[in-house]
Design a protein around this nucleic acid. Structure first.
Lengths: 339, 339
DNA sequence: CATTAGCACTCTCGGGCAGAGAGTGCTAAC
DNA sequence: GTTAGCACTCTCTGCCCGAGAGTGCTAATG
């Protein structure tokens, strides 16, 4: 970190990263000298490579194999990407067609985006619906099922509906419920979910029936499940794409990654924490899950009408086409946000 | 099929199936003679095995390897299982604890069942919510979002909620919508979804506003999405368990199976068609998807209060512990149905 | 003094080979 | 009909060897 790399070292490093990303094979000095016009001999490059390894930018699978970039090497490479590469006209056209006009409903858009990204990149894509905490309640409805259960439905201004079955205290009558529904509705409509979470129900309902404070627990249930729901708006695309990546020929590595992808809660944590970090790229060991220390994840955000932002990300091996994925993500999230 | 196997051939076949299920290795004549008390020499068993192979019950990976059961062999084995093995007390206790009393909501029960089955069997479990076609509408609510969109929510008597955003014709006013909602609600409540599908809306709404027949298309949308939703109530458990099965050490086979599991629509088709066949066990090539010709799927049904039945199944290699899985499935579906 | 040619060295990978092990199929004896 | 014996086949493992790729070092060079 302290010493900035001189120009030629950078060139060598980037050549190695570039080559390794394409071939997935450790790259040697001769290859660099041949394929990239650096104007120096392999021997010189060897010296530079040796230095770069000492500095921690490269690693060597074994003596007498070529070098591969370390996480630190990738990091420098990614940080140096100033102008992310332009998409081809074909890609732009494809994206526009698939995310085009007449997609109804948030679900469909997100699913389409996930499918699209995974097929374009051959990596796994993860799309997270807009965080609901900032969304405003459009309406809250309580529909009784029978005397002991009711369905509570919340509609946000973004058109998202979440619902939950709640247990009711035995003591409620039908009429109680109707009034209750009316009052709750009036109290909640227009507020954000996070406001709702802090709302003291007794002040709202106190005037009506001070006796049935037990109802509060039912509302607590709903609020709890709203928090849960927040993490559930998750769409995976191309989870099996890692099978195509030579990096995961090893069954043990494969298992690690697939196991994570199977757990919604983990994926959720992964994406949100990746997005929380200032950079939108998390490389290998930078990311919070030990199991994904051979993966990188690139994240972009979008907003879909409402105030909450959503996340859209691509998960692949550290040997990832960073530039291209960044361009794609940027463009796709832009298209989505335009709706 | 024409000739029934004589007793000793059956014993040999079943011994091979049994051994192969446990070891995943081709089993030879010596092994059978040693491990199973048939009272005959390896040579005799070899003769029987040769016959069984001619009849199509066994196959040989290569000359001079042991035999493995063919699909036909498994089929005979499964059909011969009269008394499925009893569960251990520990298993019974475990299942009861995990599916015990206080699970609220269909979602939770189904998820718990899926998780439980996959961890008990080390295979993949698939749980399908009760078919909604037979469920009765408890309530239908239309909540306008803005002038061009509304959320239509349907609550079944089972407590299941499905909702959909529909586009509205421009010509509707707020007041129209309110009346419309009221009328639709009255017309639909108490009917089954399949009745609803055939309902002629014009007879219901005709009296009110003959002009806005365009509304029919909106309702068509909802009904279409209801059909879609039907297939969406799908919970997978332990999809990565196949990684642990030696049968799928080969990356190509793995890819086939995982690819299917990734596609909800395919999985849905798989389970429903498997359940449609009279036997609850589909072995290898018996099942409808080419990609799963090395898998078997065992299915049971349950009912959850309402009239619709749900499916619960386990997908594993053809080399599956049929008896045990059948017992587990039977017990779990029974426990679920008791709710 | 940075660069480079030359060279010895190391490590992997693939092919070839031999021996062990497992299993079969056949034949002849019981 | 059953079985012992035996030759045969096939896989798997370990081993060796040579080819290939790549490095690191040294000494020469501009």
């Amino acid at each position: 970190m302290v010493a900035i790399l001189d120009e030629r070292k950078r060139q060598v490093l980037f050549a190695i990263v570039h080559d390794y990303i394409q071939t997935a094979e450790p790259v040697g000095s001769r290859t660099i000298a041949r394929r990239y016009e650096l104007g120096v001999s392999p021997a010189t490059i060897r010296n530079e490579m040796s230095d770069l390894e000492d500095m921690g930018y490269l690693a060597q699978p074994h003596t007498s194999a070529g070098r591969i970039p370390s996480d630190k090497g990738y990091r420098l490479y990614v940080d140096s990407i100033r102008n992310i590469p332009a998409l081809t006209a074909a890609e732009v056209e494809l994206i526009k067609r698939h995310l085009g006009s007449k997609l109804r409903g948030q679900e469909f858009i997100l699913e389409a985006a996930a499918r699209l990204l995974s097929s374009l990149t051959n990596y796994t894509s993860i799309v997270l619906g807009p965080a609901t905490a900032a969304a405003r309640l459009h309406a809250l409805q309580i529909v009784p099922l029978d005397l002991s259960r009711a369905v509570v439905m919340v509609i946000t201004d973004g058109g998202l509906v979440v619902n939950e079955v709640v247990e009711l205290p035995d003591s409620l009558t039908h009429h109680d419920l109707a009034v209750l529904c009316e009052m709750t509705n009036r109290a909640c409509t227009g507020r954000t979910l996070s406001e709702l979470r802090n709302l003291d129900l007794s002040t709202v309902l106190g005037a009506f029936n001070e006796g049935i404070s037990a109802f509060e627990s039912a509302m607590d249930q709903l609020i709890g499940s709203l928090q849960r729901k927040e993490s559930e708006h998750l769409v995976l695309g191309g989870a099996t794409n890692i099978l195509n990546q030579p990096d995961f020929r090893d069954m043990q590595k494969l298992r690690n990654v697939l196991k994570v992808l199977e757990e919604e809660a983990l994926v959720f944590k992964l994406v949100t924490s990746a997005a929380a970090s200032p950079a939108s790229v998390n490389i290998g060991s930078e990311n919070p899950l030990e199991e994904l220390r051979e993966c990188s994840i690139i994240t972009a955000t979008y907003s879909l009408g409402g105030p909450g932002i959503g996340h859209i990300s691509v998960l692949g091996p550290t040997r990832m086409e960073y530039g291209r994925v960044m361009s794609l993500l940027r463009f796709v999230s832009q298209i989505i946000s335009e709706k």
